[in-house]
Design a protein around this nucleic acid. Structure first.
Lengths: 226, 226
DNA sequence: TTCATACTTCGATCTTAATCGAAGCATTCG
DNA sequence: CGAATGCTTCGATTAAGATCGAAGTATGAA
């Protein structure tokens, strides 16, 4: 019989609860060790090791050895985008693993989507950039305009470096909480890095939530007016 | 602690090869029966039935009963979007897909569906009636407008008799070859009867196929322009 | 060297669920 | 009314793989 893109293999990798927990943890954007990931998944180190080997063989993860530690991370932007779209569907069906607590609103406000900003703030940022004609939208494709390029360089982002990379500069990512697009790609990553470097925002420990400081809130509102 | 949507359930639904094949088949956008989907997946009808129940419970599919048939389709755009993103990632790691073959062309053109017209001609007829505002569409429901009623009576169909019957006058029926709706109900039956009585169309022997005569083709095209 | 840490591999167990035959239910057709 | 078709449910079997204890490997520290 004929076969297509092997979505079954990918699905089965994501389909195990332990692996799904690990992947969700890695959506925070930080590289984590097998020991940390085992804790996230609530399994022993041996089991985690076996899962990580499968995820790596499936191309979802890459590892980096550093001394006695091994750091695992999502291998590409595409993996993060794929997981986010699955989360989007799961969320729309009300399939959540947690009791709605105080963390939930924080996640909806601003969070890391692998390496870029998501949630209300992520969506607002892209909207603002599009409204200012700094990013042009063609269907699902995004493109940085000349004005956008100037704007980005004025923020201190090395446009040439973005251009050099093989990754797309701008790219849409469907937001599971807002159910609208936000900005991914190397520019999305660069902007989040900028916010954190400037001290405007901080990553929460053991969470995908991003907490903006008071000055960060102000700066963000000025940079990306609604 | 855990946070965010549960991707494991969705992943496990997609992760079974049989289900993945069914979903891939349904990505074509056409509704398919359990028997057809079982063939796509290379499993028996019983197994397919069990899988379809799970996919429906998981919100990925919806079913529509049509006489002895059940037509399954992806439930929302978001499901297709999600599958596409997974296929995109899977395809980036190799593998492509190919399509199944065609069936009897005469059946696809025009045939009997119990008692009314189906196939390309059936779909075209309903499309034309809707475009002329003689049938009003509300979701899955159809209703004959005042203009439609006049039109029907002008054709020599006894509207009062249709009205008296307990059966619905207009009703959608999912077309297996076109995978779009055509007109069923007592009006659908009356129209097919009309075509045959006028000598515009004939039922093929031992087949569900309907053969239109030359004058029938012409009359049909004039009555139901595209 | 020796010990400790971080992780992998092996092997055995055990749970889950995929599978299909057979029987049952629903609908249409003659 | 049967008879035929399309599909579901039940039950038993079987295969896959998730899990963890124990043993093995690699790196760093004392």
């Amino acid at each position: 019989m004929k076969e297509g893109p092997d979505i079954a293999l990918i699905g089965s990798l994501i389909g195990d609860p332990a692996r799904a927990n690990m992947l969700t943890a890695l959506m925070g954007g930080r590289a984590l060790t097998p020991t940390e990931l085992a804790a996230h998944a609530g399994i022993t180190l041996q089991t985690a090791s076996s899962h990580l080997a499968k995820l790596e063989a499936g191309g979802l993860l890459t590892q980096r050895k550093q001394g006695r530690h091994r750091y695992y991370a999502l291998s590409e932007d595409e993996v993060g985008l794929m997981l986010e779209s699955i989360m989007g569907f799961a969320a729309s069906r009300g399939l959540t693993r947690h009791q709605p607590g105080p963390k939930d609103p924080a996640l909806r406000k601003a969070r890391v989507c692998y390496n870029h900003l998501a949630g209300d703030y992520g969506v607002r940022m892209l909207d603002s950039l599009v409204a200012a004609r700094q990013i042009a939208v063609t269907g699902e494709d995004l493109a940085l305009t000349d004005g956008g390029r100037a704007r980005v360089e004025a923020l201190g982002i090395d446009y040439a470096a973005l251009k050099k990379s093989r990754r797309p500069i701008c790219r849409t990512c469907l937001d599971w909480s807002e159910r609208r697009s936000h900005l991914a790609g190397s520019l999305g990553e660069a902007l989040l890095t900028l916010f954190i470097d400037k001290g405007w925002a901080k990553r929460e420990q053991n969470s995908r939530a991003i907490r903006f400081t008071a000055t960060g809130e102000k700066a963000f509102s000025e940079l990306f007016p609604q």
